[in-house]
Simulated assay, not measured.
Amino acid sequence: MNYKIRRPNDDESSPNYPNNTQESWERNTLRDVLLEAYHEQKRARLWRNIWRGVGVLMFVSIMASAMKGSPENRQHQIATHKEHTAVINLTGVIGGNEDVNHVEILRDGLEEAFKNKHAKAIIIHANSPGGSPVVSNVAFQEVMRLKNMEKTKPVYVVIGDMCASGCYYIASAADKIYADPSSLVGSIGVIGSSFDATGLMDKLGVKRRQRIAGNNKGMGDPFSPETPEQVAIWQQMLNQIHAEFIKAVKLGRGNKLKEQQNPDLFSGRVYTGLESKNVGLIDEFGNVYSVARDVVKAPKLVDYTPEQNDLASLISRGLGAKMNTKLESWLNSVW
């Protein structure tokens, strides 16, 4: 559709009258551009409103889930009002994942279980190769603190496939330790390792240029030779950490350990469940089911392991710093 504004004195036959064809093309082009811009703006507004609506629905759904709980959470709530055995899972490399805080898992799970009068005992179900000595020591201290403070119900560790090194560090805080005869237990030692690539560099004709302030600042660099003094420093550090490990195990296990009959008890070796009972690293054989049924006399198992990565759990903990960060990022992407 073409639009023209004509004045009474305009004469289309006049040589001064604009070219109708060119004028019409320019007008149509301008109209098409404006219409397309209008439609594009309208579409953008529509999708923005749609996404806002979706965002609000998602937020409301998450809030409702956090407040009311999932079917599993509702079952958990029902189960906790009956006599049961509380279970807290200790899995993975201790301190090996920044998204999983093993200290918080144990502390929060233990606190919740101790508060529930229907939980007759607490089982820490351990299946870990170990990990950070610092995280292990903090977890050990927290288990000991809560156990000694509450004194209302026993804390047992039941070992699955493995509870070695840092995992056993934590396990030694329990009142009793149970394992399968084929479980791997112990490894009470400390390891620190690296590579010496100086021989390879010599063969390749490559020399290391390293500038340091302090004779031992580059200690541990695989491309620099290690001095006898640095070897002694490394060994001293490992010995000190090992001594702390041994002290914690002795504090937790006490006279159950048969150290005199087994001089290699703290050598870092791993024992089977059969061997570990003979040397005093565990008390009896058992699994979560047999311990709950035969020892605690409360066969119903209820998982008290706190969830650490789901959004609903973060909301239910009071919109902490981590929740605020996730929520801000999500809202920015929606809006």
Rank of each mutant, 00 (worst) to 15 (best):
M149A: 11
R31H: 10
Q22W: 10
N148W: 11
V100G: 03
V135A: 11
E104Q: 03
T85V: 13
H118G: 02
M63S: 02
Q41C: 11
A86W: 05
H76P: 00
E36Y: 04
N137M: 15
P133H: 07
Q141R: 09
V54F: 04
A66E: 02
A113E: 04
N20A: 02
T91G: 09
G92K: 11
G109M: 15
L57A: 10
K42S: 14
L30P: 01
L34F: 11
R45W: 04
P18T: 10
Q22R: 14
G95S: 04
V60K: 00
M67A: 02
S128T: 15
P129R: 13
V93T: 13
A44G: 01
V60E: 02
D11M: 12
A113T: 08
L30C: 07
Q77L: 01
I78P: 00
V56M: 12
D32C: 04
E40L: 00
V60Y: 00
E26D: 01
N89H: 08
P18G: 05
R43G: 07
I123A: 06
D10N: 09
G96P: 03
V56G: 00
G109T: 07
S70E: 01
T29F: 13
R31I: 12
H81L: 02
I124Y: 06
L30N: 08
E104T: 15
I122F: 11
N28Q: 03
T29L: 11
A79R: 00
M67G: 11
G109Q: 05
V138G: 13
D10F: 09
R43I: 07
A121R: 05
K68Y: 01
M58F: 04
P129Y: 13
K42A: 13
K82S: 09
W25D: 08
G109Y: 01
H39V: 04
D11C: 07
Q41N: 13
K117D: 01
K147D: 08
I94N: 14
L90Y: 07
N101Q: 08
M58C: 15
R45I: 06
N20I: 11
L106Q: 03
F140I: 07
V100Q: 11
R43Y: 15
H76C: 00
D32A: 14
Q75K: 10
D11W: 03
Y17T: 02
V33M: 12
T91I: 10
T85E: 14
L110A: 10
G130R: 10
G92F: 15
W47A: 04
V54I: 14
V87H: 09
E112I: 03
E98Y: 14
L57M: 06
G92E: 04
Q77R: 12
K82Q: 11
G131S: 03
A79Y: 00
G109A: 13
V54T: 09
E83C: 03
K147C: 05
Y17N: 08
F114S: 06
L30M: 01
E142M: 09
A66Q: 09
E83P: 15
I78G: 00
T80Q: 12
H118I: 02
I124K: 04
G53D: 01
A64K: 10
E23N: 02
R48S: 11
V56W: 06
R74M: 10
R31K: 14
E112W: 05
L90S: 12
D108C: 01
P18M: 14
L90F: 10
N101V: 05
P18A: 06
A119W: 14
T152I: 15
